[in-house]
Design a protein around this nucleic acid. Structure first.
Lengths: 184, 184
DNA sequence: CGCTAAAAGCAACTATTGTTGCGTTACTAG
DNA sequence: CTAGTAACGCAACAATAGTTGCTTTTAGCG
């Protein structure tokens, strides 16, 4: 994706490839998408795609990783609980979009092997949120991963129909219910 | 996989294909395994594979689904907590094997689209365990999914190095810690 | 502007994947 | 044991994926 000419034609190509990947992954599932297909849909020469990304794996992962903008503002309401609630709702909303869900499932397939992991940014954000409150934090990062992130992601991947708007708040309620100690 | 001649040569083919898939998925990750590759490794004609399963997706999913025998005995110790502990340890152990982890990641990729979901059996077992104790159950199936299954599966897929022998007991401790009410 | 080189396009090619028709093997029912 | 047929193997073929060398366009910079 790094590119010494980020503007003009390159940008246009990138944009249309992105769009094509998203459409195709949603339509057919990641497993049934190929580079020639993407190139045709994007109105771009397959060679350009091969040369920029090398293979499908890399390309889709790359596109998936940056779909939820890592630069976006992170909730900052004053309490950890409210921050996490806001943040979790955002994630649920994001993955309620079938495109994003499909990209996540694709990312899961290559999670063990490649460097790029499409949830890396999410975990970094969780860390920031908790650490912001230092000693006052009543839950640990591990607890956030285990009982907030994991259930959401699990459901997105395997039980997408079980997600609803209040999935996030339900999980938060449980997470904070017992004012549990921060041991993992 | 249904086959009107389950014995003899067919069985041998099935067995060697299974083995080949497991080896290759572990070696190269599911995304980089192809049917011709599997056939060659198995010492079988590619045509046989194409005719039996149709495509890679179906084949791998089929093989992954039955790797943790659905017929195996389910823990029955007398208390829900002990049963779940035993059961969760089994799952962690199972997925600590890189072959199984790789197959799971593969299954995730096609979870949204196909009928066959390689965790279906796991969820059925969770239901059985909890329902066995009826009203006495202090945790709900949903809680087991959210706070026991989900964290394990999430870590298998995205953070395999973070799994250890006591991951299961840690999660069980948290699940039962507050004698939480069985609301989800 | 006008250079320079990075990135895109094109075309010919190779390699791999997937299909089909047909002969062969060998499982299973009787 | 035998007949019937399901599943396998083989070979030729078709379709698709990926590579390479070269030309054309054009972003970025003085």
């Amino acid at each position: 994706m790094q590119n010494k000419r980020p503007g003009g034609r390159s940008a246009a190509v990138l944009h249309s490839v992105k769009l094509a990947v998203e459409e195709l992954v949603e339509e057919r599932g990641r497993e049934r998408v190929t580079i020639p297909m993407v190139a045709e849909r994007a109105g771009v020469n397959p060679t350009s795609v091969y040369r920029r990304w090398g293979d499908l794996q890399t390309m889709i992962n790359d596109i998936a990783t940056y779909r939820l903008d890592p630069q976006r503002p992170i909730p900052e309401t004053g309490t950890l609980r409210a921050d996490l609630t806001e943040w979790a709702r955002e994630i649920v909303t994001h993955y309620s979009n079938p495109v994003n869900a499909a990209l996540l499932r694709g990312g899961a397939a290559s999670a063990g092997e490649t460097e790029s992991d499409c949830l890396r940014n999410r975990r970094a954000e969780a860390g920031m949120l908790v650490e912001r409150y230092g000693e006052d934090a009543t839950v640990s990062v591990d607890q956030v991963i285990n009982h907030l992130v994991a259930p959401i992601i699990y459901r997105v991947i395997f039980l997408p129909w079980s997600l609803s708007d209040d999935t996030a708040v339900g999980l938060i309620d449980e997470l904070f219910s017992a004012e549990r100690s921060a041991a993992s």
